[in-house]
Structures are given as C-alpha cells and as structure tokens.
C-alpha cells in the first residue's frame, strides 16, 4: 500500500499548484479561495452529522405521536439546508492570503474572523488530515503562536501538496528571519 510513501518526508513535491505568494503587506488584498474539494468535504461532514437526526426523526415518526410528517419535514428541510446551502456559504466566507511575511486567514458567516499571523511569530507548524480530508486530498494547515489568544490558527481546506508547500515556505521564512 501507500504506507511507505506516506510516511516518507514530503520531498519537494512537484507541486501542481504554486503557493500564491502575493507581494506587499497582505492586509487588504483579495483572498485566495480554498481548494474546491473543501466544499465537498464540508458537505460530506454535514451529511454525516445529519444522519443521526434523520434516523431519530424516522423513529419518532414511527411512533405516530404527532400528525404525519410533522417531524420529518422540518428535520429534512433543515438537514437539506445544512447540506446544500451552508457548505457553499461557508466555503465562500473562508479564504486566505499569503504574502511575503504573513498569513491572513478569514472565516465565518455570522461572526467574521479575520486573523493575521506574521511568520516571524510562528512557533511550529502542523499539517493535519482527517479521513475525510484524505479522501478529498485536502489538509489543514495550523500555525501555532506564543500568544494566549489565537494560540493556534487553523487554515482548513488546502490542497494537500499546497499545504505542505506553504509549510515549507513559512518555515524557510523563520530561518531567514532568525539569521
């Protein structure tokens, strides 16, 4: 299996996508969109989350306590909203901008969070992949800082090679700054 290739270090992977480094301060420039597969991953997550509720609704429906379909219809409608509408809204609300010395991460529909971490403050870097992420070939990049607020800033939904590239880029910057 691919066990060995996975465990091997990511030797300068021939990246299909280049790290979109934007010159300048990166505070106001346009955000880069996440990997399109991220929307599918969010959708799959929503489906998995809504399954127990739908099953529960079925069971309640079977008890025939309330008039027919009075539980089923709202539950299914809400689940559909969560599966169809929300992932794409969340996807469009998220984005990042990587500039020469900092990473900006934006997220949130109701509560907008716009976070900037200068590379010079990064303590260590994680690239994480859950099972769903691996299926869709995406990964989460996490930057850890020493601050109490925003101790770790997560950027999900990057293409896996891109996440690794970005890690290299940020790490090399730490080295450059320190010397």
């Amino acid at each position: 299996m691919d066990e060995n290739t996975d465990a091997a270090p990511p030797v300068v992977a021939p990246a299909p996508e280049q790290t979109p480094v934007v010159e300048g301060l990166g505070d106001d420039q346009a955000l880069t969109e996440l990997h399109p597969n991220y929307k599918s991953a969010l959708r799959l997550q929503a489906i998995l989350t809504s399954i127990p509720f739908i099953v529960g609704a079925f069971v309640l429906e079977g008890q025939a306590i309330l008039p027919t379909a009075s539980i089923m219809i709202p539950v299914v409608l809400i689940a559909l909203a969560f599966i169809i509408r929300l992932p794409s809204r969340r996807f469009h609300a998220r984005g990042y901008a990587m500039s020469t010395d900092r990473l900006r991460v934006a997220r949130g529909i109701l509560f907008r969070h716009d976070t900037v971490v200068p590379f010079g403050r990064v303590q260590h870097i994680d690239v994480n992949q859950g099972p769903i992420d691996r299926f869709f070939g995406i990964a989460t990049l996490t930057l850890h800082t020493a601050g109490s607020h925003n101790a770790s800033v997560h950027l999900p939904g990057l293409g896996e090679p891109l996440a690794r590239d970005m890690r290299e880029e940020i790490r090399s910057h730490i080295k450059r700054e320190a010397l």
Partner: peptide
C-alpha cells in the same frame, strides 16, 4: 508525522 487514518505532520524549526 503520525496517524493511521488521520495524518498529522508537525514541523518545529530549531530556532523555536
């Protein structure tokens, strides 16, 4: 790097 199903890779620069 670790994880059977999920994969986690952590990089800590020596400077830090």
């Amino acid at each position: 790097e670790s994880g059977i199903i999920s994969r986690a890779a952590r990089s800590v620069p020596y400077e830090r």
